Amino acid sequence: MSPLGTGDLCRIFENLDKNGDGQVTLEELNWLLEKIGIHYSVDELESSIGKSNLDFNEFLYFYGSISSEEIVKSGGLESQEINEGDADQETDLAKAFKVFDLNDDGFISWDELQSVLSKLELWDKRSGGNCNSMIHPYDTNNDGKLDFEEFKSMMLFTIS
């Protein structure tokens, strides 16, 4: 089961598609990745994707492929030695965590997540929902918020 449902991904896609043409450019996709602390050049994305823009179905495929790649790279749930790339990834995730931890208490609540996504124009407050459903699958101790390890699990599974 995907932690982000099709509806969530549709809202993200629509917000990324600034000109409303039904296509997300690599620049728009790269903007999102940069905002969450994942750094690729547009050339690297184009080389990986093979085209300069994505329609919604291609966006879903991209999301699924990067989620699957991370599970394979991490060896599923098995631990592995930290190499230089893993250390860089850990640093990027720590930076991203700080972006979402608005009150700097070491946790990300659903309202902090929703607030940041709203500021990035990736969450529509008028939808009436909240981000609780996004963090719930990763909230292993069921305290209603994510610590860094829970956040890391969510990010590694969903986007990187």
Rank of each mutant, 00 (worst) to 15 (best):
G7R: 12
D8G: 03
I12C: 07
I12M: 05
N15K: 10
N15I: 02
L16E: 01
L16H: 04
D21S: 09
D21M: 10
D21R: 13
Q23W: 01
T25G: 15
T25H: 06
E27F: 06
E28F: 07
L33N: 04
I36S: 01
H39A: 01
H39D: 06
Y40C: 08
E44Y: 02
E44K: 12
E46R: 10
S48N: 04
S48G: 01
K51V: 00
S52A: 06
N53E: 11
F56H: 01
N57L: 14
E58T: 00
L60M: 10
L60G: 00
Y61M: 11
Y61E: 14
F62Q: 04
Y63R: 03
Y63I: 02
S68A: 09
S68Q: 10
E69R: 14
I71E: 07
K73A: 13
S74N: 15
L77Q: 10
L77F: 08
N83I: 03
E84N: 11
A87G: 05
D88C: 07
Q89R: 15
T91Y: 11
D92Y: 12
D92T: 01
A94P: 03
F97D: 06
K98Q: 11
K98A: 08
V99I: 08
F100A: 04
D101H: 12
N103H: 08
I108K: 03
S109G: 15
S109V: 15
D111E: 09
E112Q: 15
L113S: 07
Q114P: 03
S115F: 10
V116A: 03
S118R: 09
W123K: 02
D124V: 08
K125P: 06
R126I: 04
R126M: 10
G128Y: 13
G128Q: 13
C131N: 03
C131D: 05
S133P: 06
P137Y: 14
D139E: 01
E149T: 13
F151R: 10
K152L: 05
S153R: 08
M154V: 00
M155D: 07
F157E: 08
T158M: 14
T158H: 08
I159Q: 03
